[in-house]
Amino acid sequence: MSRELVFKRIRQALQNGGEDTSATGAPSTWEYGRPTAVADPIGLFIERIKDYRAVVLRTPGVEEVPLLIASCLAKAQATSVVVPVGFDEAWIRTAALAGIELYRDEPPLSKQELDGISAVVTTATSAMAETGTIALDHRSGQGRRILTLLPDTHVCVIRIDQIVSDVPESMALLKTSIQAGLPITLISGPSATSDIELTRVEGVHGPRNLYVIVVG
């Protein structure tokens, strides 16, 4: 069996010279999950995610969220939107009134159906200021992974208390989701490529428009 063969080879290899790899020597003093010093995480997050050419809107309270969602969808010229299970229905009422068709993912929509829908609205799990990253663990309100993939516009609602300094702090929050077996998607701006002559092009496969609504 190859499994045994591979393990045998590994154990033999490790007997050769044991511990002493050509390693850097010094044991790491890294502390996990440390917040990094960021003066204004919310401001930095907004600045950084704008760098990726996402559109960011900020509102002090939830009251304005329905209006902002509707205006994002209008700006993206969306005609239909998929609403994940657990997403606050009240938030999309304005959009529905504006004539945008709503699809609920219950029962689950097929790939083909989703491919025909122009936008998706979700919440998020956490956001990283330093890198301008949104993290989804696809729990209630964030939808199955495919929902934030096929539609061309993604509108994401984030509360300011979800915004943390940097990758370590956010990963520490995501740890329980990962341990619970949930899939994680980290999104830093719309999909992009620099494959042709290193020219940056937004939107190859994922949503080409990313709208972020920061609440609080």
Partner: peptide, 24 residues
């Protein structure tokens, strides 16, 4: 991401743990 494409973070990172029922 910083070492490879010179970005603070790459646009997408996916993590999955075996099978997620009803997703993927």
């Amino acid at each position: 991401p910083r070492s490879s494409t010179g970005e603070r973070m790459n646009p997408y990172t996916s993590m999955w743990t075996g099978v997620t029922p009803g997703d993927g």
